[in-house]
């Protein structure tokens, strides 16, 4: 506790860095994956390449990906852009499948009924399919939130500041309190962001009282 009180300003800064690295990939992967998931659910031709591709992407370990991305994109190794790109790719790898499952869970009858009542394809997507796919989509988004928050810490070993810096610093200088603080805060950030997702889900889908993980 003395360590924490003496280093509070550093910890706050790292917490802010951590949030700035974890929130953008979560939002980006959601925006990218929903249309891709809809495409995979609606067309047999797109389904296999999209799901196989994202599945294999997810198999690539995070640390090597942090090093491969700068070589391809030209981003600086320690720049936030590298971490955000890598974590967006992971997020999409999980969410495209999740979104495809979510849209596939919308009954065909409902889609036809929307068409019969004069909804355009665009209106049917926004007003019928997306709300119905919402709960399943939300449960995969929650997985993405928790794993993204945890993966951001890996960036610390290549020198990108986040709560993971508390692990690398603490390890090199032999301060257990630093590492423990990092672990506790990372879990807290994950739990808080997850809870925000659930609350947002309740606000957006008031007809749905409970959403399971």
């Amino acid at each position: 506790m003395t360590w924490l009180s003496q280093n509070l300003h550093i910890v706050w800064g790292l917490l802010a860095d951590h949030l700035l690295l974890s929130v953008p990939p979560i939002l980006l992967s959601l925006v990218i994956s929903v249309p891709l998931g809809r495409l995979a659910a609606g067309s047999r031709r797109w389904r296999t390449p999209l799901l196989t591709g994202t599945g294999l992407l997810y198999a690539i370990p995070s640390l090597p990906l942090f090093i491969i991305i700068p070589a391809i994109t030209g981003f600086a190794l320690r720049s936030p852009a590298t971490i955000i790109t890598a974590l967006t790719l992971y997020g999409c790898a999980l969410l495209v499948r999740g979104a495809a499952d979510a849209f596939a869970s919308v009954p065909e009858d409902v889609r036809l009924a929307a068409e019969a009542t004069g909804h355009s394809r665009w209106a049917s997507f926004w007003r019928v399919e997306l709300p119905l796919a919402g709960p399943v989509l939300l449960s995969s988004l929650r997985v993405v939130v928790v794993s993204t928050v945890s993966l951001v810490t890996v960036g610390a070993v290549i020198g990108t500041a986040s709560l993971g810096t508390l692990f690398t610093d603490g390890f090199q200088r032999g301060i257990e309190a630093s590492i423990l603080t990092g672990i506790v805060l990372t879990v807290v950030v994950a739990v808080v962001l997850d809870a925000l997702c659930v609350l947002a889900g309740r606000a957006a889908m008031p007809w749905r009282r409970t959403v399971s993980a």
Binding site: V143, V146, S147, V149, S150, T153, V154, A156, V157, L163, G164, F167, T168, G170, F171, G174, E176, I179, L180, G182, I183, T186, V187, A190, V191, A213
Partner: peptide, 17 residues
């Protein structure tokens, strides 16, 4: 669900120490 939130690097370094 707990294991998903636990940061690997934190676990590695604390056990390393």
């Amino acid at each position: 669900s707990g294991a998903r939130a636990l940061p690997t690097l934190g676990l590695l370094t604390i056990l390393g120490l």
